[in-house]
């Protein structure tokens, strides 16, 4: 869908203007909505991803890059600009299809989970990822051995209120997501063995009877609840080897903006400090202008 030289150029520019904070995610798409739109043959997406993910770091690191490949070829050129980070920004691959976490590990790429899995499944994937990445053949000049997962965030002092607002948001996201026409549904192929439904992998949990989220329509591990519940939830993710969580803070504008901001403020005040070191807590905090669209928390 995107020429790798263009991706290398734009990513490097973004790394420069963000003062070296860029992390680059790669993906092959799981929907006919996207692949059909660009007339991409679904059979080829793994192959082209493999080729592109290996040339991007070289474009960033080499003064003279040339390539004779199967997806594209180019004569020797200096691809500019070069990124600020040395040797280059950390690279990730999004993981929807089972097994892609192993592709990530074998190539020294971060595992960016976009398909929500329960604790047990995520633990299995994370363990295997960390085992495999020790012997990886990295695609670039650095190994990114982090595992991030995708989650939802709605935080309120009152667990029931959080649930009443958060559950419809989760459902709305899953329904809107399901409107996409899955590749496997439209096109018979070996390259896509599952319908890429983000919500399908989450399962109702078996938990202690006093857990307030039991029988309330929330799958296990979802970041909806009061601060205490969220701390407990995130600690559980941390315990199974997840190094970061990417939170969706709203979906389909289900939650009024003020409530989204209140939720994020409460999360920042009550939950985030639990996961910060003493040095981080003492450091000054810069607040960018504008309204953030998503929040993430890094686990240390």
């Amino acid at each position: 869908m995107n020429h790798p030289v263009r991706v290398a150029e734009r990513a490097a520019a973004l790394d420069i203007i963000s003062n070296g904070r860029l992390e680059l995610g790669t993906a092959r798409s799981s929907t006919w909505t996207e692949l059909g739109g660009f007339a991409v043959n679904p059979d080829d997406t793994k192959k082209t991803w493999e080729e592109f993910v290996r040339v991007l770091p070289r474009m960033w690191m080499e003064e003279e890059f040339e390539w004779q490949g199967s997806a594209f070829s180019m004569p020797a050129r200096n691809v500019l600009p070069k990124p600020l980070q040395d040797p280059h920004p950390p690279m990730w691959v999004t993981v929807t299809s089972p097994g892609t976490e192993l592709d990530a590990a074998d190539r020294g790429l971060g595992c960016l989970g976009v398909s929500s899995a329960g604790y047990e499944e995520q633990e299995r994937r994370t363990k295997e990822y960390h085992r495999r990445i020790r012997n990886c053949d990295p695609v670039g000049g650095l190994i990114n051995d982090q595992v991030h997962t995708m989650n939802f965030l709605y935080c309120d002092e009152d667990y029931r209120k959080a649930r009443d607002v958060g559950v419809p948001m989760v459902s709305a996201f899953n329904i809107a997501n399901s409107h996409l026409l899955w590749t496997r549904e439209a096109y018979p192929t070996r390259a896509y063995q599952t319908l890429g439904n983000a919500g399908a992998a989450m399962k109702p949990k078996k938990a202690a009877a006093d857990d307030p989220s039991v029988a309330k329509g929330l799958p296990e591990g979802v970041g909806v609840g009061d601060p205490e519940h969220l701390v407990e939830t995130i600690k559980r993710w941390e315990a199974i080897g997840v190094t970061g969580i990417n939170f969706l803070v709203n979906a389909m504008e289900m939650i009024p903006q003020q409530q989204v901001l209140d939720s994020m403020r409460l999360f920042a005040r009550e939950v985030m400090p639990v996961f910060r070191s003493a040095e981080e807590l003492a450091a000054p905090v810069s607040t960018p202008s504008g309204t953030p669209a998503a929040a993430s928390v890094g686990l240390h």
Partner: peptide
Amino acid sequence: IACRSGARA
């Protein structure tokens, strides 16, 4: 017609 019942294909 391809559709979704809930989130199911």
